[in-house]
Design a protein around this nucleic acid. Structure first.
Lengths: 209, 209, 209, 209
DNA sequence: TATGAATGAGACTTCATTCAT
DNA sequence: TATGAATGAAGTCTCATTCAT
C-alpha cells in the first residue's frame, strides 16, 4: 500500500526513503493523535516516539498538518484495503451485501478509535485536503453502491436508481455509528447482534416483498 | 430556555446578569467556534466579538473549556427545545413519527454547522463534561423512543422491544448525517427528497406488513 | 492601641470608622498573608474574608501595599504591646533581663508565624515604609538596651558602652531565630530549655566575673 | 562547583550545555532577584538579561520556581565553597573558631544582598524544595559544630553536649544578622569591630574560666 | 541526511484598581 | 458610604518551525 497519493513536499530526494520514513511517522503519530487528539499532540512527541529528531521529521513533511493528512489517509486506506479484498459480488446479492456489511462493521469495531478520530479531526485539515479525504470516503461508498446496483440489476433489490447512493451512505453511517455512538450502543448490544439487526433492517427496506 | 444546567463557577453574584452575559458569550463564541474550531479560536477574539474585555469574560467562566461546555449545551438545548414542542404522539403513530422526523431533520438542516461542530469538538471536553453532553443526546433520543414505543403498543409498528433503542438511534443518525455528509448528500438530494426517502425507508422496516 | 501612626490616605472622612474598618482589614489580612504570603493573597480574598466588598476595602486604603504596612505595623505593635507592660527594670538587673528575655521569647514562640512573615515580606514594602518598620524594631530593641544600660550603671553587667546596642540586637535575634530556624531548633530543644540556655549564655558574657 | 545537585528537568540533552546555560541563567537571575525580588522579576527580564529568548530559557528549566531553586542553591553553594576550604581545625581550638567566624562573617558581608535574599524568598519555594535549602544550611552549620566538638574534646571549650548545636546556630545567625539587620548594625559598627566583638563574646561563653 | 538547540509569537489566565450606581 | 462588575496590562508557559553544525 502506498501511503500517500497526495503530494506532500519533502526536501529528501530518495523516494524510497521518503516512503519508509513516512510510514514510521504515521505509525508514531496515529497512536498519539488517536489518544490525545491532533492539537494536543506535539511534533516533539511524535519525533521522540519514532526515535528521530525533530529536524529529521521536518525533512519529510512541511507542516504539522501534513502529518494529519498522512494519518487520515492511512486510516482510510487501511479500512479500504481490509474491506475490498473480502468483498465479493456473487449471484446471491442479498448474501453479498450481508457479507460486506459484516466485514465492514467488524473492521469499524476493530478500528473504532481511528474512525472516531477521522470524524473529529478532519476539520483541522485545509479545505483542499478535506476534499481529498471525502474523495476517499466516496471510494469506500462505491463498494456498497456496486453491490446494490448489481442486486437491483438482478432484481434481488428494489431501490429507485436515485436512491442507491443514499442507501450506500446509510449502510456506511450505520456502521460508523457503532463507533461514534458507542457510549449508547455498546452497552446495549453486542457487535454480533448489532450487525445482525442492522443487516436485517437494511435488507428489509430494499428487498422486494 | 436556561442555557446551562451544568454548574459553572462565576465570580459574579447577580444570577440574572450571569445568564445575560453567558448568552452573549455563547452568541459570540458559537460563530467563531463553528467557523474556526475550538482550538483556533482565542479568548481575545471571543471577548472582542461580544464587545467586552478579556477580564470581564473571565468573570463569567473559569476556563476556556467552560465556554465550550456552554456552547455545546446551547446547541443541544436549542435542538431539543425546537423539536420537543412540535412533536406530538397521536393515535396515528406512523404520522407522528413522520412528523417528528421531518421536524428534526429540518432543524438539523438549519443548524447543520452546529451539528457538525458537536461531532467534532465534543472530544475537547473533559471526560465528565463529555458524559454530560452524551446525556443530553440520550434525552433527544428518548423523544423518538417514546414515539416508537407508543406505536408498538398500538400495534402500528412491529419492532422487537430490544431494538427500539437502536431504531431511535438510526433515525437520529440518519438525520445528522445530512449535516456531516453534506459533501456527498446535499449535491445529490434536496432536503425534501432526503426527508421523504429516509422517512419512507424507516417506516418500511418497522411497519407490519 | 492605635494601629497605624503612619499616614495612609483614605477617602472616608470619619476617623473613627477608618480605625474600625482598618482593624477589620488587618484581622482578615494577617491570617491570609501569614498563610499564603503577601503576593499570593488577593484583594478579593481579603475583602471576602472580612465580609465587605472590594470597593469598600478601597475606601480605606490606597494600594495593596497599604494593607501590608497595616499588617506589619500590627504585628510589631502586638509584640511590643505585649512585651512592654510586663518588663520591669528592678534593682536586680540580671533578673530583670532574664524576665524580659523569657517574656519576649515566649511571645515569639506564640507568634512565630507572624515573626517569620515580617522577616520575609518586609522587602515588599517601598523604601520609605521599610524604614518605618525598622524604626519600630528599633523601639523594641530599646527596651533591652534600657535594661542593659541600667545593669551597667548598677555594675551588675560589664559591657562596653559601645557594645550595649549590639548586645540588645543579639538578644532579640536569638529570640527571633527560634521562629525562623524552627526547622532545626524546635526539633532539638523545648522552648523552656531554649530560653534557659540562651539566657544563661547571654548573661555569662555580660556578667562581671 | 556543580550548580545543582537537585534534579531539574530539561529538554536539552547535552549535559554540559545544560550546566553552562544554567550558570548563565543563574548569573542573570541572581542580580534581578536580589534587586527586585522573585515575584517582581519576570521571565522575560531574565531571558533578556542573559541575551536569550524566553523559549530558550524554558529549554533549561520547567517553571519559574526552578530558577529560584537554582539561585538559592547557587548562593548556598557559593558561601559553603568559600568557607569550607579556608576553615581548619587546628590544635588551637579557640583560634580555629575565631578564624572560621572571621571567614564566614566576611563572606556574609560580601554577599549580604544574597543572604538577605535567601531569608526572604525561601518561602516562595515548594515544601520539598524548601527542605532542600534547609538541608544545605544544616551542612553549613555542621562546619561550626565540628570545630566546637573538637574544642570540647580538647577541653578548650566547655559546652554541654546538647548545646553544641545551639551554639553553632548562634554563631551563624549572629553572622547573618550583620546582613539582615544592617540598617541598625552597619551604621554603628565597622565589620572589623563587629567580627571582633561577636567573636569575643562567643568565646567568652564557651571558654572554661 | 541527520541533529537538536534556538526562536518568539501567541495562548490562557490573573488580579489590582476604578467607577457607575 | 457601599457595592461589585468591568478593565486590561502583564505574567507564565508552549510549541511549530528554523538553521547552524
Amino acid at each position: 500500500m502506498s501511503i500517500s497519493k497526495k503530494e506532500i513536499e519533502s526536501s529528501v530526494k530518495d523516494k524510497e526513503l521518503i516512503e519508509i520514513r513516512r510510514k514510521e511517522i504515521v505509525n508514531a503519530a496515529v497512536d498519539l493523535f488517536v489518544r490525545k487528539g491532533f492539537h494536543r499532540t506535539t511534533i516533539r512527541e511524535i519525533a521522540q516516539k519514532f526515535g528521530m529528531s525533530v529536524g529529521t521529521l521536518y525533512e519529510y513533511i512541511r507542516t504539522k498538518e501534513d502529518i494529519l493528512i498522512l494519518v487520515c489517509d492511512y486510516i482510510n486506506s487501511t479500512v479500504r484495503m481490509r474491506v475490498k479484498p473480502s468483498v465479493e459480488i456473487t449471484k446471491d446479492s442479498a448474501q453479498s451485501l450481508i457479507n460486506a456489511i459484516e466485514i465492514y462493521y467488524r473492521i469499524i469495531d476493530e478500528l473504532q478509535d481511528y474512525i472516531i478520530f477521522l470524524y473529529q479531526e478532519t476539520k483541522s485539515l485545509s479545505h483542499e485536503n478535506r476534499k481529498y479525504i471525502f474523495k476517499s470516503e466516496e471510494d469506500m461508498t462505491a463498494i456498497f453502491e456496486d453491490i446494490l446496483k448489481h442486486g437491483v440489476e438482478q432484481k434481488s433489490f428494489k431501490i429507485e436508481e436515485k436512491n442507491i447512493l443514499l442507501t450506500a451512505h446509510n449502510i456506511m453511517v450505520q456502521g460508523q455509528m457503532w463507533a461514534f455512538r458507542r457510549w449508547a450502543l455498546q452497552k446495549n448490544y453486542t457487535l454480533e447482534r448489532y450487525i445482525e439487526t442492522q443487516s436485517k433492517s437494511i435488507l428489509e427496506q430494499i428487498t422486494t416483498h
